[in-house]
Design a protein around this nucleic acid. Sequence first.
DNA 1: GACTTGACTAGAC
DNA 2: AGTCTAGCCAAGT
Length: 103
Amino acid sequence: MTFREAVWQLVRRIPRGRVATYGQIAALLGRPRAARAVGGALRGCPANLPWHRVVNAQGAVSFRGRMSSMLTQRIRLEAEGVVFRRGRVVLRAHAWRRWRGLP
DNA sequence: GACTTGACTAGAC
DNA sequence: AGTCTAGCCAAGT
């Protein structure tokens, strides 16, 4: 299993209405400093993957060459109830917490 | 195997 | 709060 596949597998588990950060994904995979590689893994990912639920550490949508794709990502997130504030996702409210309710 | 390339980040001003 | 910089790392050449 390549790193890229592991990223896809994990991203698939982010629930609707929640977001994860590149660094968070990397950390969950045991590579706390591979945030940048997570971005690379999402480049050319399967179309059915909820890639739009991954944002940067500031809660902002990362630039990917065109403004239109940023807008698409934002629209998709808002469509699932994610709230933006001054151009950033309100992480306090929407950050994916895998361990909620566990020790 | 040695570069190069980014959907990244934390830290320093 | 904005801007720069230096690390980092999997993939593709």
